[in-house]
């Protein structure tokens, strides 16, 4: 499950990340108005929501492996709980920010 989800999220992220890199390069240091207009396009909004969810899921899976490799004992349990909390929190905050922009 962990193994498959790490690969699945990776495959989903590849095209979105390339798209985002070029989009941000095109935006440059755009004004607030221009960025909001860009974000309010349905395609951009959908892709960014997918990006936020997939990114933090992928981050959680990757960091979990690193923690399991290098951290031992009670610190390992604490690290894993913190990792999960932070990833869930950042996903929720990211989606909330996007919703606020689009609504």
């Amino acid at each position: 499950m962990h193994w498959w989800m790490q690969r699945l999220t990776a495959a989903v992220l590849v095209p979105i990340v390339v798209w985002l890199a070029f989009s941000v390069a095109m935006l440059g240091s755009a004004s607030h108005e221009a960025v909001v207009r860009w974000l309010q396009s349905p395609v951009v909004m959908t892709l960014l929501m997918l990006l936020v969810v997939t990114t933090f899921y992928h981050t959680k899976l990757g960091m979990q492996v690193i923690i399991e490799d290098y951290v031992r004992g009670w610190l390992k349990a604490v690290s894993l709980i913190l990792l999960n909390l932070i990833c869930v929190l950042l996903t929720v905050v990211g989606i909330a920010a996007l919703l606020k922009i689009v609504l």
Binding site: L48, V52, L90, A96
Partner: peptide, 18 residues
């Protein structure tokens, strides 16, 4: 690990726009 920190910054940018 670098990109995990980068993802945090991405959220900060989104929050600042919002």
């Amino acid at each position: 690990v670098v990109l995990a920190v980068g993802a945090l910054l991405l959220v900060i940018v989104l929050v600042s726009v919002a």
